[in-house]
Amino acid sequence: AETITASVVGGSGFTGGELLRLLAGHPNVEISEVTSRSKAGKSVGSVHPPLRGSDLRFTEPDDLESVDVLFAATPHGVSMGRIDEFFEVADTVVDLSADFRLETEAQYDEWYDGHEAPEYLETAEYALPEINRENLAGADLIAGGGCNATATILGLYPLFEHGILEGSAERVVVDVKVGSSEGGAGGGEASSHPERSGVVRPYAPTGHRHEAEIEQFLGTSVAFTCHAVDMIRGASATSHVFPASPVSKGDLWQAYRGCYEDEPFVRMAAGGSGVYRYPEPKAVAGTNLGEVGFELDPSNERIVVFSAIDNMMKGSAGQAVHAANVALGLEETAGLEFTGLHPVGAP
């Protein structure tokens, strides 16, 4: 089978480590370089246990080797400053930060601190194949989705795609519960173990950055709130949707099966029997799977939509590898076959 060379810029963080883990196990990938300013010279296994025994060592992030695809797992604001340099060494760049997710410079002025390379925003392709597969084939610059937005979009997309929601009149409330890896390895006092354990802690009561990304792809504004809960990796989004006209369960199943029946990385979990009746982060931890489900609440004219992902995988590194597989014409599920553990503890 075809082999492509790949490098990871910013390989010492949680997301960088997850990317390394996936690429190291990918049948078509040969890792040529992993950069980290803080860990240069150290073995990748000393930072990421799943890579123990690998002879790969972190290198300085300057004078990068040329590769087929470069993954950037750097904090927001870094890729936009180095994108030209990245394209000098790689044909395809997959950026996992927010630097190329939004379409217009104005959005970056409003939600971030402006943009240093707005000319790339036009051509950047959003990495979520379930809603952007046709544009990903052969794309040069791929922008990984945010984890909260990915969970929310996966849940709501079929409702818009099949006209159950038009995206104007309806009210949509999104209430998300996330793990601590979203904040990255650093994080201040609030993410020390004694303070972060066992919380149900509202931390973004009004999450405008997430809303901007969600609105861009669903065409509707959502009222978003995020809570930190006692997980490390995992995101659960519950969307409360009030359609303008009544809808039946049959309509919902048609919409969701229509969008997801043939998708390799979306599983339906909407009622039924057993312990895991609705989507749950535990059920998809470590996998690139998204679980989606719904419940109809006629008395409140409401549809409750549930979606669960692993924010490190479907919400970040897994989505990046999936998008790269599509862009480079590889088998879509290559390197992403793990389907989770049961029983398992907090993800």
């Binding site: 199943w253 099966r257 029946e261 339906m268 909407a270 009622g271 039924g272 029997s273 057993g274 009746r277």
Partner: peptide, 25 residues
């Protein structure tokens, strides 16, 4: 419930409960 195909084993009996592998019903 969801309209998906349900795979059935051959010696099916009336009264048996089968859960749908798509929606779990």
């Amino acid at each position: 419930e969801c309209g998906a195909e349900v795979s059935l084993h051959d010696d099916l009996e009336v009264g048996e409960i089968i859960d749908c592998t798509t929606c779990g019903a």
